[in-house]
Design a binder for these strands. Sequence first.
DNA 1: CGATGTTACGTGATACGTAACAATT
DNA 2: AATTGTTACGTATCACGTAACATCG
Lengths: 293, 293
Amino acid sequence: MELRTIGYFVAVADAGSVSAATRLTHITQPSLSRQLRQLERELGLELFTRQDGRLTLTPAGRQFLPVARDLLSRADATRAAAARIRAGSLPTVTVAAPAVTLNDIVAPFFATFGPDDPMPRVLPLDASDEYGALDRGADLVIGTRPPSGTTARTPLASFPVNAYVRADHEWAGRREVTLAELVEHDLLVPTPESHARRAFDAAVETAGLPVRLTEFSSSQVAQAVAAAGRGIAVVSDDPRYDLVRLLVTTGSGDVLRIGLHAAWSPHHHGAAHLAVLVQRLRRFVRDRYDQPR
Amino acid sequence: MELRTIGYFVAVADAGSVSAATRLTHITQPSLSRQLRQLERELGLELFTRQDGRLTLTPAGRQFLPVARDLLSRADATRAAAARIRAGSLPTVTVAAPAVTLNDIVAPFFATFGPDDPMPRVLPLDASDEYGALDRGADLVIGTRPPSGTTARTPLASFPVNAYVRADHEWAGRREVTLAELVEHDLLVPTPESHARRAFDAAVETAGLPVRLTEFSSSQVAQAVAAAGRGIAVVSDDPRYDLVRLLVTTGSGDVLRIGLHAAWSPHHHGAAHLAVLVQRLRRFVRDRYDQPR
DNA sequence: CGATGTTACGTGATACGTAACAATT
DNA sequence: AATTGTTACGTATCACGTAACATCG
């Protein structure tokens, strides 16, 4: 039983005769006649009675006809679905990102979606192999490392890593502090999953500096402890407890920043839509976090 | 796009590789590989990416997969429907009969149907070509003529044609009256579509007798007029207005009766169910109309 | 090497068209 | 005669299997 043969059956039933159905099927009458008989043999049903040199639907055929029609309409729907995909439709979009990013950035962005936007789905990432998620169901990956390989990419935003000190600290009047200066103190940092921590760890490792870290599961708690004068909080969020913000500069003089990058496959069938979506996300992030540039 | 190729796609997606899918499809790996590529060309979709000597679903393929699965499940449903028909299922049963019979007999019978019985449908018949309805959608025909041809048949019941006279009529003490006697009087008859009228007309025509008929669209009105002494009502229903019932005998001495016959195709896929249904109908009619024999 | 998937080539099945036939109207 | 559907026969297509090749772990 194939779609073709089912189509032949419906054509004959609709046209009322094999001869008339040839106009619908574009095959010759004997071929059509044979296919029909074979379908009957295959299904084990007598769909038509042959009498008086004519075909008339049997009750079995009459009962099977709507079933056959339904199957054909599903086949049409399948072809239509393929066409929509080909045209780049995105009924759902799956965004993969570290859990922190999903909560802090992706989720608020999804909250701005309208009814015509795709249904958002989400895929939490473990730190390693961020962009491999593109092969495991993600349409879009938001990562902190610049994507490698043949992915399309857009830098979304970058957030400075802040070192927060008390207003009575000796650095309170400065705007920046070097990494080398910083590691001389007790540092209050969030967990290794956080963006700030990862950026900080990477910079420290590059510089080969020893550090004394105290880890907090919440960066706000880290700030509170800094406000108590027990160390310097190195976090990425906004200041609390009247703490003073210092930017952190690396050995090469750059300000230590957390980069957020969006990546997707340029061969994705909805790549155009994805690019638009990423632009919206970029604008959203910059508006929300008041980014420069 | 055929069911076979769609099945190949789903098999490969499920198995994770072409090689593994050969266990599901029972064709060799190169053939499967080719069919898959052809499906991609036909749909215009890149369902898998070929990289690292492996296939991985693209977002397009991931989006198409549930659609393909749905089509296959519909195909299974279609095959299952064919199997049910083959086994003789009757989700609906279409009974064809003259409108009078549908109202007076078939409809009350349908009222006794339980939830497991087929959904009843109905097809009004014109008097001529009663049993031709079997080719126009009827599973079962209830007719007044004995069916001809190769149909399966069961006599359902027969109702006498009654001649109703007033209690003060000269015939009031008799049980029967001959057709020849009857036609000497003014006769009050129902419309030509009714069973009684048709049986009466046929008998009269056979006997070659002249008649004086007054036609009423309701046999109860005919009885009322007979009660008024304006003629003899020749109808098939039960007496009213204290009229006296006489059976009508033909020239050959038989009592004039209306026969009801059920007919269906012995090749009908649900012929067994139909036979049972007809037996129920027969019992129903006899119980309800208190038939002899 | 042992997986993978693709390409090449030959074969068998089969869907198809042309032609001839049979049966009704 | 004109229409219907079936049978017969030859052909072209196409799905399939075997084999050889390419690539990656």
